[in-house]
Write a protein that binds this DNA or RNA. Structure first.
Lengths: 133, 133
DNA sequence: CGTATCGCTTACGTCAACGTAAGCTTTCAT
DNA sequence: ATGAAAGCTTACGTTGACGTAAGCGATACG
């Protein structure tokens, strides 16, 4: 049985990252792989966290920001004040993501216009070329 | 008349960036302010470009990627092959943005679930606290 | 006329996020 | 037994995106 843990190499292959990157994330307390002697063993939780880390990076968050967000996602049973604080931060993050989505939709609309313009351009140039032949 | 151009300071105030940043963007050929003697004068085109630069950064693009995208947006009348190539790149970018939006929506849904969970948590903890009093 | 203020250039400093190299154990197949 | 492979630690190097400091020219102001 594989005990549901991955070696560092398997983890790298699964997520297309380097060992250095995984060790770096551990040093920054973004991942907490178990140890079997010296060797790291990455659990299901680590895989879920790494997925969120990479997603966060695609959205342009810094590792430090991502670490805080992970602390939110993976809170155990904590004190009420902690939960409440986390709740507020999560709501702020939601607002951030929604505004990002809106801006992204703007950018998409802009680009679609740009593409229409490009199509007309190409068409008219083909026109011109045929006329010149 | 202000000739529709901004000094570097006005530009900084308008976009909340530092002079260093604007000079840096010029050095990297992302902006092309005119000169009045030594002094930079930022045109409407520069303002539009800077808006796109800052938007790109919020989406996690590197300045080099952004420069290429700007070259697309602001192509003059070029050769057909150039237009056609730009068209392809723009379509690829559109696909990228749309997939980002989809992933963003996923993240938003996840977070909404998380928030519901948090609300329940807080509610049940208030319950517990009242029971213990 | 002195002196601030604004802008310019040149150049070195910095921080995040890894890359890369050196040298050391453990493991496992030949 | 051994030597290649995989993993580890430590530490210095690198790249991108600016920050910051020094020093100079022009311009405005009291």
């Amino acid at each position: 049985m594989t005990a549901d843990t991955l070696t560092i190499r398997e983890m790298c292959d699964a997520f297309e990252v380097t060992p250095r990157t995984l060790r770096f994330y551990e040093a920054k307390e973004l991942l907490f792989p178990h140890r079997e002697g010296q060797k790291r063993l990455f659990t299901k939780s680590d895989r879920a966290r790494l997925k969120l880390i990479l997603r966060g990076k695609r959205f342009g968050f810094s590792l430090e920001e991502i670490r805080q967000l992970l602390d939110l996602y993976y809170m155990g049973d904590q004190q009420q004040t902690q939960i409440a604080a986390a709740y507020d931060v999560a709501r702020a993050r939601l607002a951030d993501l929604e505004s990002r989505r809106d801006e992204l939709n703007e950018a998409i609309d802009d680009l679609k216009d740009q593409l229409k313009w490009g199509e007309k351009m190409i068409a008219s140039m083909n026109q011109t070329r045929r006329a010149a032949e």
